[in-house]
């Protein structure tokens, strides 16, 4: 990778618009995510976080606006280039979205089998590495998704998202549904991945402990755009009523 591309932001969004019928979700949304940081996307329910995430992982196209991922303009990519870019992204869906007919190991190996030409033994080794990096016990690898607890499902889903060493990792509410101990462990894991692999992490979260304790940058979505971006402490001091309401929930605890 050349020095210049290291300097382009991981994600650059300009003038993004999304609407369903005449219901406008985003209008003129701008967002810049620097590389190698943990970025948390927050905002009230229905503020359009999932819609934005689906745009970023190229599942849906916005009505207007430009998205650059790792320096590439998403809209201008051909089929091949699009696939190559997709392989540089990892996504962990909110419910895990593990393939039910496959074991944990097979789930993590699937992207390696389909997209690399590594010999089977090395693929297994890579999968075992990612599974244990995600904090899942090696004994669980032959289990099927239905035999996993909520926390194990999240970890298995993270291992699959990490399979191809993504440069950007998208996490949809990674700590929701976890007990506080597992949730903090997950936060530490996210920070460790950032430090060890230099991954950019873009997560949707409602967990104030993750927002304050494990985020380099917090992006607040309201009024159909990014209302504010900064550290959690900065956002907590902002005068806008939406931000005050959101962060006063913490003070009230």
């Amino acid at each position: 990778m050349s020095e210049a591309s290291e300097e382009t932001p991981a994600i650059e969004v300009h003038g993004l618009c999304n609407r369903f019928g005449d219901h406008v979700v985003h209008e003129g949304l701008d967002l810049v995510v620097p590389r190698g940081k943990v970025v948390s996307l927050v905002g009230g329910s229905g503020s359009g976080k999932t819609v934005l995430l689906n745009n970023l992982i190229m599942l849906t196209r916005p009505a207007a606006g430009s998205i650059r991922l790792l320096g590439r303009d998403v809209a201008s990519l051909g089929r091949e280039e699009r696939i190559r870019l997709q392989l540089r992204l990892g996504v962990m869906f909110q419910q895990g979205a593990l393939f039910t007919s496959l074991t944990v190991l097979e789930n993590v190996m699937l992207p390696l089998t389909e997209h690399t030409r590594l010999p089977r033994q090395l693929r297994e080794e890579v999968a075992m590495l990612k599974i244990q990096l995600a904090g899942l016990d090696a004994d669980a690898v032959h289990r099927h998704p239905r035999e996993l607890s909520g926390g194990m499902t999240k970890r298995a889903a993270l291992a699959r998202a990490l399979a191809l060493d993504p440069e950007i990792l998208f996490l949809d509410e990674p700590t929701s549904g976890l007990d506080p101990v597992s949730a903090r462990a997950f936060d530490r894991l996210v920070l460790a991945l950032r430090d060890a692999l230099g991954v950019t992490i873009f997560q949707i979260t409602h967990d104030l402990d993750s927002i304050f304790g494990a985020s380099d940058l917090v992006v607040f979505l309201a009024r159909k755009k990014v209302l504010a971006a900064g550290t959690a402490e900065e956002l907590a001091q902002r005068p806008e009523p939406e931000l005050r309401a959101y962060f006063s929930a913490r003070a009230g605890r």
């Binding site: 190991l105 075992m128 590495l129 090696a138 032959h142």
Partner: peptide, 18 residues
Amino acid sequence: ATLSLIDRVAQRTPPPEP
């Protein structure tokens, strides 16, 4: 850093399948 990350991983090969 990447090399030390792998070093920390305990088990390299999957346990035998049932």
